[in-house]
Each structure stands twice: as C-alpha cells, then as structure tokens.
Amino acid sequence: MRIASSLPASAGVGFKPQHFPAIAAVAQPLGFFEVHAENYMGAGGPPHAQLGFLRERYALSFHGVGLSIGSTERIDRAHLARLRILCDRYQPESFSEHLAWSSHGGIFFNDLLPLPYTQATLATIIEHVDEVQAALGRRMLLENPATYVRFAESEISEPAFLAAIAGATGCGLLLDVNNVYVSARNHGAEARVYLDEFPLDLVGEIHLAGHFETVDEAGAPLCIDAHGSPMIDEVLALYESVIGRTGPLPTLIEWDNDVPDWPILLGQAQSAQAVLDRCCARDRAQSAA
C-alpha cells in the first residue's frame, strides 16, 4: 500500500475555481494544491479541465468532505467507488478525510459532526478507515476536527483517539492547527497541551485557516471554524512550534468562505512558507555547527 502522503514539505493552497485564471497565468511558488474530492465527481466540464491543468504542474492533495467516516452506519460504498475512480484518474499525492460524520439516515448534512471518544466509537472508525484504505489501495490521512460540544461519555482524549486509529490502521494524520486552537478554546483547554499529547510523528500534512470568535450563553469563548478570514497570529505561532518539533511538513491554507482575491490567499501561503524556510535555515545552521 502506498505511503500516506508524498506531498512536498512546502506551502499549498486550497484551490478555488475563481482563482484559476490567476493561477494559470504564471507558475505559482507553491508546493501543492488541495481540492475537495466531491467537487470533482461530475463527469466532465471545467472542473476536470482545471484539475487536469493543476495535475500536470503541481502535487495534488484530495481532501474528502463526504465520506462520513464517523458514521455509525455503513460507509457509502457508491461514494467510496467514486473516490476510487477519482484517485485512480489523478493519482493525488495524498488523500485525507475527517474524524467526523456527515451523513445519517440517508441525509447528507454537509457539515463535519462530532463524535464521542469511546472504545466503541474507536472500533467503528478503525473498521471504516480500514475499509477506505482497502478500497483506495492507499493509506489516508485523518484530520482532527473543530468541535463545539463534547459528549459526557467520552473517555479518551482526542490525540490519544487519533493515535489509536493510526496505530490500528496504519493511516497518517492531518493536523489542523486552527482546529486545535478552536477546539481548545471551545472546551476551556490549552492548545499547547493538546499538541504535547498529539502523535506528531504521524502527521503527513498540516492545515491552517481563519476562524472567528464569539461567546456562548455563559460568556465563555466560542470559536467558529469558518474558513473565511486570515489565520490569527496565535495559530501561526502554534504552527511554528509544531514545525520546530517535526521539521518541515506539507502545509495547506484553507479559505472556503468569503474567498479573497488570489494575492491575499497566496500571501497566507507565503506566511506559512516563511515558517518552513526558517525551520530549514535553522536545521542547516545546526548541521553546519
């Protein structure tokens, strides 16, 4: 089975069709592009023409948003088959999905919904990740979610839960640093404590994004993972601390709502690239010393 991710350890951007003319005009200083796999499950047209263009020039990451790996029902085999066809056609350097569920009872909720972290849930997810990896003939990356509520029955921490899935299935992990920040604020916890527990050696890709903050009925912070603004400095600082420990990793900027003009999005990627470059420079200085 192929390794979980062979994306280059540089900055990439979530592709939006409105940016295609700007991206196609000149070679972009980016290591890869990521697309939501479901947007390319139509038969033809501009989506495939654009994806084909990107495929010829850049590394590609396929990020699924509809597989509902955390579902207590069976994995949607028809959807898995579509994913297989897409991966076979484009041979992306990475495929990732979420520790979440999005379908139930025949309804697709179009959102990433939370799970209680119990032994029973763990067994279900392991089974589903095994099934996905067998169907795709490749290892996948599983992403930590942004969550807004907890479950009283949760008995395992999220980092330990993800580590157990990776241990049992051989999948890698996608560390969304913004999600770490958002979830920690939402649950009155510390992002750095979460990251200390996270199995960083299993991370194949990092996600960065913006969020906005409001308050709940008790006046406590409530962060919403909206992907509609620049990342905040605290998230960039957390990211730098992760990269300091792991070394350079493929790093994606996600911006899905109120999508800005291309130069602004590229600027976000360049901020992440600067962190990666600083890390490489430090490594070189250390090995020269």
Binding site: V149, R150, D216
Partner: peptide, 16 residues
C-alpha cells in the same frame, strides 16, 4: 451533549 460551561449547550449546538 455537554460543554465545559453548560449541561445544555444550546448556543454551541446551534453552531452545527
């Protein structure tokens, strides 16, 4: 479904 601030986190659930 709970949160660290409430046993009935209506506003948090409303995000979903």
């Amino acid at each position: 479904v709970i949160s660290h601030t409430s046993r009935t986190p209506q506003k948090r659930f409303a995000v979903y």
